[in-house]
């Protein structure tokens, strides 16, 4: 039992708890929060598993994950605030149009 396995186990349990929150809800925002948290934990698990298997090139993957997590959440904000993905999130740039 290495430390990597222990950490991986802890991350998995934590993912399970976040998934439980995602299923329980109650609001849609709780579910976004859980999906986001699962994303962060996935990033960590990938890094740890990469070290466990002796293949740290998994880290590129971890970077992609955090990037995708971020874009997903921004899209959600936009969807909630405006109901469309179309216009700008911010109006500061439209002044000089």
């Amino acid at each position: 039992m290495t430390i990597f396995s222990i950490t991986a186990f802890a991350i998995l349990v934590s993912v399970a708890m976040a998934l439980a929150r995602a299923i329980l809800g109650p609001t849609a925002y709780d579910r976004i929060l859980s999906a986001n948290a699962i994303g962060t934990k996935t990033v960590l698990l990938i890094a740890v598993v990469g070290f466990m298997n002796g293949r740290p090139d998994f880290l590129d993957l971890a970077l992609v994950y955090s990037l995708m997590n971020f874009i997903g959440t921004i899209a959600v904000l936009k969807y909630f605030k405006f109901g469309t993905l179309r216009g700008g999130l911010s109006d500061t740039r439209d002044k000089d149009l």
Binding site: V15, A18, L19, A22, I23, A28, R31, I32, S34, A35, I38, G39, T42, L45, I46, Y65, G72, V76
Partner: peptide, 13 residues
């Protein structure tokens, strides 16, 4: 959709 994105993370794991 949100649950599906969580499932997708699990899938990739």
């Amino acid at each position: 959709t949100m649950l599906l994105s969580a499932v997708s993370f699990l899938m990739a794991l």
